[in-house]
């Protein structure tokens, strides 16, 4: 069935308004889009790691989740949802439940790349029928923009401030999607918000409806942490894709597919200049930083091209 934005939007929204995420936040956009990928006859239990998303969507007594929801802690969304999924199988086997359920966990990059990494790895390896979604905003935003292992090279965060001696985060971003692929899970994909949301919507559907464990990595910009005007969200995600900073690809049963190949790969500087977190890279004498990032992006892109041609 071909994708139609109109039909997609006519589906039930499973995230409610009245949540307390900042204006222009990327995370609720990711959540509502992914939940719309559920077929109307299916219910879902959602788990969120402790994060901006969690504290903003279930502040007692106000829940923004229209279906069942569980928050447990920061580092264990994957383990928690795997417990729910296992209970479902146990109760279904005993004939105690007749509804059809899907299981989706959300975590920020801190809760996924860092503190929740072990729990995620365990759940993926065990192969629960679940989807883990990382809404990647590249730092610990809930606690005030501290670096994570997902923070890009040289980014200015509150624990990697662009100082006189150390100019921001000195390490590259961890490639979590590839690590998840290495688990041998049936489906892993990287996506973000582009155009009519075809890419993210189709990937969410595949992730939910491929039996077994699936992983989605969604770039979800944070206007406060990245320091850009909130209305620019879709320009930034587009530039991330056009510069190949955040390539759109999916891996189905080990086979890499590149979902979008820019006609003309834009220089990374186009992306970097849109955000205050990279502003120090544009100071005279810091040209090497931009060059280095360009080299890293090129190398990762070449790797991906090779993998997708295999």
């Amino acid at each position: 069935m071909s994708y139609s934005l109109k039909e997609n939007l006519m589906k039930e929204e499973r995230l409610a308004g009245g949540h307390r995420m900042c204006a222009g936040c990327g995370s609720p956009i990711a959540v509502r889009t992914i939940l719309r990928a559920l077929e109307p006859e299916d219910k879902a239990v959602v788990c969120s790691a402790t994060s901006c998303l969690e504290v903003s969507t279930f502040m007692y007594p106000y829940t923004s989740w229209k279906g069942s929801f569980i928050h447990n802690a920061f580092e264990n969304a994957a383990a928690t949802i795997s417990g729910v999924e296992t209970a479902y199988r146990a109760l279904k086997k005993q004939g105690k439940i007749d509804d059809s359920y899907k299981f989706i966990a959300f975590g920020g990059d801190g809760g996924t790349y860092d503190i929740g990494f072990q729990s995620l790895s365990g759940a993926m390896e065990r192969g629960h029928d679940m989807v883990y979604v990382c809404y990647d905003n590249e730092a610990y935003m809930n606690t005030g923009i501290q670096r994570s292992s997902s923070t890009p090279h040289f980014a200015d965060t509150t624990t990697t401030p662009a100082g006189k001696v150390i100019p921001g985060k000195m390490q590259q971003k961890k490639n979590l999607t590839k690590i998840m692929v290495a688990h041998g899970i049936p489906y892993a994909a990287q996506t973000t918000f582009i155009g009519n949301f075809k890419d993210i919507s189709e990937k969410a559907h595949k992730a939910i409806y491929t039996p077994g464990a699936a992983f989605l990595n969604v770039m979800a910009p944070c206007p406060r942490g990245w320091r850009y005007p909130s209305e620019k969200l879709m320009e930034i995600t587009k530039l991330a894709v056009e510069t190949c900073v955040w390539p759109l690809y999916e891996v189905f049963e080990g086979k890499y597919t590149l979902n979008y190949r820019p006609k003309e790969k834009k220089p990374v500087v186009e992306y970097l200049k849109t955000q205050g977190r990279f502003a120090h890279m544009f100071k005279p004498g810091n040209e090497w930083m931009i060059e280095e990032v360009q080299k890293e992006v090129d190398r990762n892109w070449e790797d991906l091209l090779k993998l997708s041609e295999l």
Binding site: L5, N8, L9, M10, M21, C25, P28, I29, R32
Partner: peptide, 19 residues
């Protein structure tokens, strides 16, 4: 064209049954 509807973080652009 509905391009505005999916980008809203706050569920503030409802799409009706008529699409």
């Amino acid at each position: 064209c509905l391009l505005c509807a999916p980008v809203c973080p706050d569920l503030s652009i409802p799409v009706g049954k008529d699409g």
